[in-house]
Design a protein around this nucleic acid. Structure first.
Lengths: 237, 237
DNA sequence: GCGGCGGCTGATTGAGGAATCAACCCGCCG
DNA sequence: CGGCGGGTTGATTCCTCAATCAGCCGCCGC
């Protein structure tokens, strides 16, 4: 933690405490959830006095907000770099997936908080966190829009939807690890998941039929005709 | 708990109140979120006295729990029907997607609560809601396991992951509507999304290349070599 | 050594809200 | 007619925390 000496040490010392608290907040939020923990928990985790938390953060909400800002902005920056960089659609998609999984590898608990607490948190506090995901989706939808013009993308796919599906797949893939469905201590599992997500997203989950056959086989043939009828009166409450 | 009468009309009258409250709870939760509302809000919405809520539900948490049970069990039942029914993988995938979207069409606010409040809610109360999604994913992973044996599925895809990706795509697709990213009053948008999700999931988002060309091109060629290096020190907090 | 300043402390306060409860209304039975 | 009981009411209680604040170190300059 003392590695921050690099900068002016008086400024960094103050900052060090702040970061300690932030770190503690992430850990506690990840463990008990935002609503499930007290400021006292954060203070204890950080090993500081209760009041100090309020010296660095206006209130509990700003604490979460800050966790969000630091974590999410870093993610978005990297995604933007991928989107605006060079490469084919396939490469960029893989790049976005990699960014997400790398973030998870580096700091799983921070990712857990982002996914569980922030991305989906209902319009509680002043900044609507819903925008978070929306922004990311909008951003990468440009990727798909460009790809579509370049003819890399299927004709009938809405760029916004495509982008949403990508993030949905990534998020649920990560959620599988976050919730323990998959074993996240297994590094190779992470690697495999990473590759499979991008591949499945790009090429679909169906068996790659013998070269040539499949490519010609599938066309927008409305595979839904049967199933559409089956949903009779769902979700009565 | 004399509501076991179910059919007899004196039983139904009592139950009617209960259902009124439940309905109000769904609406209020959808509007302000579980933590963002007071029991008083639910009571007011239902047009009943504050105390009556506690006559029918042990506490606030049980209220949410009940919203969850009713909504989710219906969904899972329908998904199970699809999974255990007849048809190809493609048809079943489309079926699962249809079930989800139909549920949204019938009762968007209930779906919103399920997605926003319950599915991702951190391990707060006694029943771990995390299991909800996990169960559904496990259930439909059988689908993929079978398909894999039948050779319908790509060799290298883990059934569990495939199932997770499907739900991720569905969920994020719905989230787009829930959050207003997409216009949910546009019925045809829903229809299109439904079809595109299943199609993209099955066949991928890439343009169907000229027969032969694309199919031969792609192989597990680790397209990530470039992007892997780019994430230097991600998500520093 | 001394005063003062900024980071730091943690008991105290106050509000918000979950849960309780005593009383009320009204239909029914004796 | 009177009293019983379950559904219903909403004021009251009680408790949990977020947020405050009055003061305590320990360092630095004088």
């Amino acid at each position: 933690m003392a590695q921050s000496k690099t900068v002016t040490e008086n400024g960094s010392r103050e900052s060090e405490r702040r970061r300690t608290i932030l770190r503690a907040a992430i850990d506690v939020f990840a463990r008990k959830g935002y609503h499930g923990c007290r400021i006292a928990d954060v203070a204890k985790e950080a090993g500081v006095a209760y009041g100090l938390v309020y010296h660095y953060f206006k209130n509990k909400d700003e604490l979460l907000e800050t966790v969000f800002d630091t974590g999410w902005s870093g993610f978005v920056t990297r995604v933007r770099a991928v989107v605006e960089g060079e490469g084919s659609l396939a490469q960029k998609v893989q790049g976005v997936v990699d960014v997400a999984f790398e973030a998870y590898r580096v700091d799983p608990r921070a990712v857990k908080v982002l996914i569980l607490e922030i991305a989906r948190s209902p319009a509680g506090s002043r900044i609507n966190r819903q925008t978070a995901f929306v922004d990311a989706i909008r951003l990468s939808s440009e990727l798909f829009a460009q790809a579509k013009e370049a003819g890399e993308l299927r004709e009938d796919l809405d760029p916004l939807l495509g982008s949403a599906l990508l993030f949905g797949a990534i998020e649920m893939g990560l959620t599988a690890f976050v919730t323990g469905l998959a074993d996240s201590r297994d590094a190779s599992a992470l690697e495999r998941a990473k590759a499979q997500i991008a591949d499945s997203f790009l090429h679909g989950v169906l068996a790659a039929a013998s070269p040539g056959a499949e490519a010609g086989t599938w066309k927008p043939e409305k595979s839904s005709e049967k199933s559409a009828t089956k949903s009779k009166a769902p979700k009565r409450t």
